[in-house]
Design a protein around this nucleic acid. Structure first.
Lengths: 251, 251
DNA sequence: GGTCGTCAAGTAGCATGTTACTCTGTTAGA
DNA sequence: TCTAACAGAGTAACATGCTACTTGACGACC
């Protein structure tokens, strides 16, 4: 019943299928599932289902328990904090570089994605909105000309999405979120790297802070958190570091 | 013939086996191998071998070609440059934070690892040396209290290792490399975050630069490289950024 | 010599079979 | 009532079977 040929292997299709199931809550964290039943439900053999799950296990989304089954892992608040710390480390410099290398083509695309975000916000189409949000971020990351950075952040963003629509930020409207991207797009357009970095920094810190607060308010375990998470890595090094003239370069 | 029980699954053992084979050149990039033969050689069935290779494929180390076999991928110079750019983005702030949070226990361990590096250098035991080099870096990363950062950098370092002993840095002795870590250990000991960051920055840039030059000298394709790779992301943002007071925090 | 079609070998991908293990529920024994 | 042995169901991990595909060698035909 999985008819649609994607050209890709069955395993890859199953990966996508299960990912979506996790994202929209059809597979809930904690519950014990089995490859057997899942293969039955999809209507294929166990092998591609198992291979798909192994890939997701490798990515930290599920865990196999020998002779028992597998579970979807619940993203902890601690993990989420780590994700946003890493996103700060990676996306802020990427935004800087994107603005530095910016040209009319990039600016146009960025404007377009932002416009699409606003349209989706007006239509209250959350999925479409998130797709364009993601596209805008990837546009910036890709402009940094480092492919590994793009895929690294893609993985990080995915972890956030795992939290699901149920825990989505309830303090901002979609239009608010779109507005928050305006300074970034402006900075790229005016080729102002520092402004782009600042905009990205503010956006990520803000988003992360709201999401963390939301989770804690929802009663999730908040042990091991650092209230200064956004500063701990970057504050002094990136913004107040004074060692730039010591060893600027090798050689 | 793979006797030794690691308690772990067969698949995991095979992952380790194949990784080593790639690292020491027993499996060479470009050549077409088959799961069939490989399973035969190891003396087990195809399934765990295939699952192991799928994991490695996910990590970008090998690529399957439908109905043909699989190849070990050759790490390009471009990729290597991306790896070192990311390591700068991640490890420099990690070193900063490690020094910031440093205590006597951490300092002692760092000193110990460095001493072990020196011993291994004297004994010309390159494997042992690299093990302690890796241990020192992981110590610093772990001290940053971000697990995802640790595993991210571990993956990045692994890509570098894929280049193999054949392309190892020939311009520095092991003792030289050990010496290069002294400022980092000192900075951790004296709890000087900026100095730790500077030391780590210098170390990574230096190592990356030498490795890149070595590869290019060896005739590897160097197209698409940025001679300013070490600055492109970090120079202005991290060391001369002036936007720290605009939006220091959300809220 | 050069081109095309046939055929056999070899493969990844997928399906199915097998094994040893972990639970749960039940019942025999105190 | 409580404990422990036992049996049965269900599972991941591993082994093996099957299929459609790619490729390269070979030979017939031009």
């Amino acid at each position: 019943m999985q008819s649609s040929r994607g050209g890709a292997t069955l395993t890859e299709q199953v990966v996508a299928t299960i990912r979506e199931a996790i994202l929209n809550g059809k597979l809930e964290p904690g519950t014990l599932y089995s490859v057997y039943k899942m293969a039955d439900e999809i209507g294929i053999s166990r092998t591609p289902v198992r291979e798909a799950l192994l890939r997701l296990a490798d990515a930290g989304m599920v865990r196999f328990e020998r002779n028992r089954g597998f579970r979807v892992l619940r993203t902890s608040v601690r993990e989420l904090q780590e994700v946003f710390q890493l996103r700060l480390l990676l996306e802020v410099p990427a935004a800087y570089r994107a603005a530095h290398l910016s040209d009319e083509k990039l600016s146009a695309k960025a404007r377009e994605e932002l416009a699409e975000m606003r349209n989706a916000a007006i239509g209250h189409d959350e999925n479409l909105f998130m797709a364009h949000d993601r596209a805008l971020h990837e546009l910036v990351l890709a402009a940094s000309q480092n492919n590994k950075l793009v895929s690294a952040v893609r993985d990080l963003r995915f972890i956030t999405m795992t939290l699901g629509a149920s825990t989505v930020d309830r303090s901002r409207t979609l239009s608010n979120i779109a507005d928050e991207h305006q300074p970034l797009v402006d900075a790229i357009e005016s080729k102002d790297p520092a402004a782009a970095a600042a905009a990205m920094h503010h956006h990520i810190v803000h988003t992360g802070q709201l999401l963390l607060e939301q989770l804690i308010k929802d009663g999730r375990d908040s042990s091991g958190l650092d209230p200064q998470w956004a500063r701990s890595f970057t504050a002094d090094v990136q913004f107040r570091g004074s060692y730039q003239n010591r060893q600027p370069f090798a050689k």
